[in-house]
Design a protein around this nucleic acid. Structure first.
Lengths: 180, 180
DNA sequence: GGAGTATCCTAACGATCGTTATTAAACTAT
DNA sequence: ATAGTTTAATAACGATCGTTAGGATACTCC
């Protein structure tokens, strides 16, 4: 998972995987099938671990708490000290050759699922905890996911964690709020 | 440029380039050097053409006009009808193998330049046309660039242009404003 | 018109890609 | 202890990668 995370699907050679996993190539093929199946397993592990920040944020009781949790924990995930920088689901196969088309579509589908999950949750808040009336949960959900993905791009570029937290805080102060 | 844009640096084989350029491989090598030099030329052309939306937005007279122009023209660029979806500078080499390390760093540097340009411009506005006092131009610049990069990721995933324009509009309504 | 030069493609290079056939080793069970 | 079965590694497979040598063609200038 860490190797795919750092190098992407196409950028990871089987030789790197054998080294990282401590298994020889035939063992990997016997256990997982082929490289694509192994990648999918890695993505599943990622989504259950470092990439679970979206699911975790959905439990927050108010819109503002949700957004705050989402953005800051996303920053921790994409700019963590002991993990590769960026997001596996974003940089795993964003643009790739024809041979990786299936993987690319798989990740795109996964990213899109996040948008619908978040939009559904934003719509589910009672009025007092939710968005001001008249705002568009779908657009806001997509905005937030886009921002998280952009933070992942920046983390992959080497932008330090503190700068990304500042971006998160900036976004939070920009949020549409109910008039007090 | 279009081929690199669609497939990324590693995902583009020389065979695709010879087909797209109508030149044989030796001609390409004679004219450009190697694949990396050709990619850099493609990026330069991209930055002078479809990727120039940031530079264009810097000419706007007010912060709000700048942001509006930036976001909407970015959407047009990354979700254009006659060009590949996404942004070459983002998806050209976001995560890649060791052989593409130089290209990856080159694009990261290019992305980071956008942040500093935008931050400088945001700071340069006279008070009446600028951000409300107390806001952080650096953080807002990075937020906007991150959002544009996130929009590029979503465009690469196949999200339709209208949805991305709605995100842009949502962000614009969220902007910190001077009290009227 | 013909020698010299530049141009461009065909073909092949070594390296590396993902994948697998073959073989050696280790464990289980009689 | 030994035969049978499973496990895993070595080595090699064809394909494709980026790159370049060699040769055929067209153009220039004496």
């Amino acid at each position: 998972m860490l190797t795919f995370w750092a190098r992407g699907y196409e950028g990871t050679a089987m030789a790197e995987l054998t080294a990282a996993m401590g298994m020889s190539a035939p063992s990997i093929y016997a256990a997982f099938g082929d490289k694509e199946a192994l990648f999918r397993k890695a993505v599943e592990r990622y989504m259950a671990g470092p990439g679970a920040y979206l699911q975790a944020a959905l439990d927050q009781p108010t819109t503002e708490a949700l957004v705050r949790t989402l953005l800051h924990s996303a920053v921790e995930a994409v700019a963590g000290e002991h993990t590769p920088h960026g997001c596996l689901v974003v940089q795993g196969a964003l643009a790739a050759g024809p041979r990786s088309a299936e993987v690319r579509k798989y990740l795109a589908r996964l990213r899109e699922e996040g948008v619908t999950c978040l939009a559904d949750r934003l719509r589910s808040f009672p009025a007092a905890d939710g968005l001001p009336s008249g705002s568009d949960p779908s657009a806001l959900a997509r905005l937030l996911v886009a921002l998280v993905q952009g933070l992942a791009v920046q983390a992959a570029s080497g932008v330090p964690r503190e700068a990304l937290h500042a971006v998160a805080e900036q976004m939070i102060t920009c949020l549409p709020r109910r008039a007090d």
